[in-house]
């Protein structure tokens, strides 16, 4: 598979960074902030699922932990918002390492792994909906304090650039993984775990490391969410919606590719907006659309949009010399 170069990453980030200079529309910026947030959360999933082949249905566990840790530290302990953000990422990584240690040690694979991660996220959701520290059923409202020191801004543009910067960091992390020995081992685990063991890969440790990195990236999305919407409750933080978004974006965009989650998030979010335009705000309809898109992708383009683009390019490259012959002949 062709890897994204630093130049690719730089161009994509630069183009996206210019958007707020072209439009001041809050609708556009809000749409993009949410899409990039989903891309970031999906990138987290992609590290474990796309490169490591371990399909988690419970990335909400990491997203929610990032959001809650950051919100609780700010509102209850007066911790600075930026420090709380960093600790939220650390908290998510810790939860990832714990769940990873438990599941991989017991040898859970495939659908069993998926179901157990789903169960962990659900348990956390139920706990958060009753525990006083998470605000139980009411949730947590982060106090309005529109200063950059408090990680709050008057306009949406700074939020947009921050989520873009986080996404850019995730691109670099993924590229680093792709080029490292660790990445080769991770792909080996995805391709054939028995063979990976035979070549001396410590598969447990590789999977655990992937899950920790994956959880940290997704937790960054959660902590950002808390800062952007200034509100967290158990359904938002640990609800299945975010677990679905996390896996939908990379699967639609192209699993195990650098830009897959971004492509997927943009397409899925645009589809969601279009449905809303056509049908009004019928509850649950976006999920129906997601389900349909997922079935179509898995059936007809298992390598996602990135795979489709690569195929088209190949076909174009093959067709071009023929066209030239025809033109000359």
């Amino acid at each position: 598979m062709k890897q994204a170069s630093l130049a690719h990453i730089a161009v994509v980030v630069a183009v996206l960074a210019a958007v707020p200079l072209l439009t001041a529309s809050n609708v556009v910026l809000n749409f993009l902030v949410v899409a990039l947030l989903i891309a970031l959360v999906g990138q987290g999933w992609n590290v474990l699922g796309g490169y490591g082949g371990q399909y988690s249905f419970g990335h909400a566990a990491f997203f929610g932990t990032g959001a809650y840790v950051s919100a609780i530290l700010q509102t209850r302990y007066g911790v600075n918002a930026w420090a709380a953000f960093a600790l939220g990422i650390a908290g998510g990584a810790l939860v990832g390492a714990l769940i990873g240690a438990l599941t991989f040690r017991s040898g859970l694979k495939g659908s069993y792994f998926a179901l157990v991660t789903l169960a962990f996220a659900e348990v956390l959701r139920i706990l958060a909906s009753v525990a006083p520290i998470t605000g139980a059923g009411v949730g947590i409202l982060i106090t309005l304090d529109l200063r950059p020191q408090a990680f709050q801004f008057q306009s949406r543009a700074p939020f947009y650039w921050i989520i873009l910067a986080l996404l850019a960091v995730s691109f670099l992390i993924v590229r680093l993984i792709e080029q490292s020995r660790f990445g080769a081992w991770l792909v080996a685990v995805r391709e054939n775990e028995e063979a990976a063991k035979a070549v001396g890969v410590n598969t447990q440790r590789v999977k655990l490391a992937a899950m920790t990195i994956s959880a940290a990236i997704t937790a960054a999305g959660g902590a950002f969410y808390a800062q952007y919407f200034l509100f967290v409750d158990s359904g938002i933080a640990y609800g299945p919606w975010i677990s679905i978004e996390a896996l939908l974006a990379p699967i639609v965009g192209g699993i195990g590719t650098t830009f897959g989650p971004l492509l997927g998030a943009l397409v899925v979010k645009m589809l969601g907006e279009l449905t809303k335009l056509v049908t009004g705000d019928a509850p649950g309809l976006d999920l129906v659309i997601y389900g349909g898109v997922l079935i179509l992708i898995v059936a007809f383009a298992p390598r996602g949009i990135a795979g489709l683009i690569a195929d088209l390019r190949l076909r174009f490259a093959r067709a071009r010399p023929r066209l030239r012959e025809r033109a000359h002949g």
């Binding site: 081992w185 080996a188 391709e191 054939n192």
Partner: peptide, 14 residues
């Protein structure tokens, strides 16, 4: 027991 989606060279390097 090879890695089917990787190239021969990648298989060897592993």
């Amino acid at each position: 027991c090879v890695f089917p989606n990787l190239t021969i060279e990648e298989n060897l390097d592993l």
